[in-house]
Simulated assay, not measured.
Amino acid sequence: MEPRETMALLQGQAEIWQHLYRVVDSMALKCAVELRIADIIHSHGGPITLRQIASGIDSPSPHIPYLTRIMRLLVRKSIFTENHHPPDGGETLYGLTQTSRWLLHDAELSLVPMVLMRYHPWQLAPLHHLSHCVKEGGTAFKKAHGCEIWDFASKNPEYNNIFNDAMACTTKIVMAAIVAEYKDGFGCMGSLVDVGGGTGGMIVEIVNAYPHIKGINFDLPHVVAVAPEREGVSHVGGDMFDTIPNADAIFMKWVLHNWSDEHCMKILKNCRKAIPKKGGKVIIVDVVLEKDSNDLFGETPMALDLCMMAYTAGGKERTELEWKKLLEEAGFGGYKIFKIPTLTSIIEAYTE
C-alpha cells in the first residue's frame, strides 16, 4: 500500500473514532449543565479552582478526581478555559468561554433547557431506531415509545414540561435575532396569531416589542392549559389542521418542519383562510437547508433533519426549492427569505 493511501486510511480510522466518542462529549456537556458548573464559575465573577467548583456542587462529598477528568475534556472542547500558571503560582483556574456562557441556568438567553431535553433518555431512545426506519418505514419515536411524540407529550406531563421549556429557551434566542434583523416585519399589522406558540413565549416578546399588535397564542389544548397569563396575549386552544384564528398575519416558528408536505399543505391553506386576501402574510421561522453550506452553524441543520425523521411522522428540514414548491402549491403568490443570526431563517409568504 502506498504511503499516501496508508495515511488516508489512518485518517479515516481517526475520524471514525472521533464520531464514536462524540456521544461522550455530549454526555460531558449534559453533566456540566446538571452540576451547574458554568453557574458556579459565573457566581465567583471570574476563573476559580477545581476545589471551588466542587464546593459549589449540590453534594456533601463531590468526587474531585471524577470532576478533574470531566473538566479536562470540557477544556479540550473549549467549553471552559484552563490556566495552568496563575500569576500567584496557585492552583489551576477554570473560567468561562463564550460557549459556556450559553450554559448559565438563569441567563436571559440560555440553551440549558435544550441540553436537558436533547440528552434526556426519552429523546435519545428514538435515535437507536434509525436503521429500523430505513428497513421498514414508520416513526422512530413511536417505535421507541409506542405512540407519536404529540400523544406522548399529552399523556406525560413531565415530558411536556421538558419539551415546552426547551422550546421556550429557543424562542428567546430566535426572538432576539428577529427583533434585531426583522425590524419592519411586524410594523403594519394589528393582530398576529402564533401557530404552535407553545406557552406563549414568542408572541409575548413580539407584543412587548410592538405593543400595537393584538397577540393570539394558538396551540393544542393541553399546551395552552399550562400557559401563564401574558399581558397583551390571549391563549386559544385548538387544532391547526381544522382551523386557525383570524388575524392580519400568521407566525410559525419551528412548526412546519415537524410535518410532511401533505400536512404542511393543510396548515398553510388554513393560514391563507385566516388572513386577509390583500396584504396578508405568513411569517415562517424555520431552517432553510443548504447541502454545501459554509454557514456558521455548519452541519447542525442536517443533524436536525435526522431528528425530524426520528421524532415526527414525515417532518423534515427543507431546501429553498422545497419551500418554494410547498408555498406555491398552497396558493401563495410569492415569498422572500431573510437570513438572521441564528440557526433558522425567516420565510415570508404572501397571499398575492
Rank of each mutant, 00 (worst) to 15 (best):
H263R: 15
M302R: 11
F241Y: 15
G314H: 07
G298D: 04
G298Q: 09
F338K: 14
V255Y: 01
K266C: 04
T243G: 11
G238E: 05
A310S: 09
K214M: 03
T243E: 15
I267G: 08
D248I: 12
T300M: 15
V224M: 08
A225R: 11
M240I: 00
G280F: 08
A247K: 06
D261G: 07
K339Q: 12
Y335H: 14
V255M: 11
L256G: 06
L326E: 04
R318Q: 02
S234D: 01
M309R: 06
R230A: 11
W259A: 03
E322V: 07
K278Q: 11
E328N: 10
A303M: 13
E229V: 07
K324G: 00
T243Q: 15
H222S: 04
N246E: 13
D242L: 12
T300K: 11
P276E: 02
Y335V: 01
V224Q: 07
A330C: 03
L304M: 14
R230P: 00
E329L: 13
L306E: 03
K266L: 05
E320Y: 05
A247P: 05
A310M: 02
L304C: 03
V282P: 02
K277F: 11
E299M: 14
E229I: 02
V223S: 08
Y335S: 12
I340M: 05
Y311D: 04
A310K: 03
P245W: 02
M309F: 11
E322L: 06
G215D: 01
E262S: 14
A313G: 07
I267N: 11
F297S: 01
S260Y: 11
I244S: 13
D261R: 10
G237I: 08
G315M: 02
V282E: 04
L268D: 10
K336D: 06
I340D: 04
E329M: 13
D292W: 06
P301G: 09
Y311Q: 01
W254K: 09
A310N: 02
E231W: 01
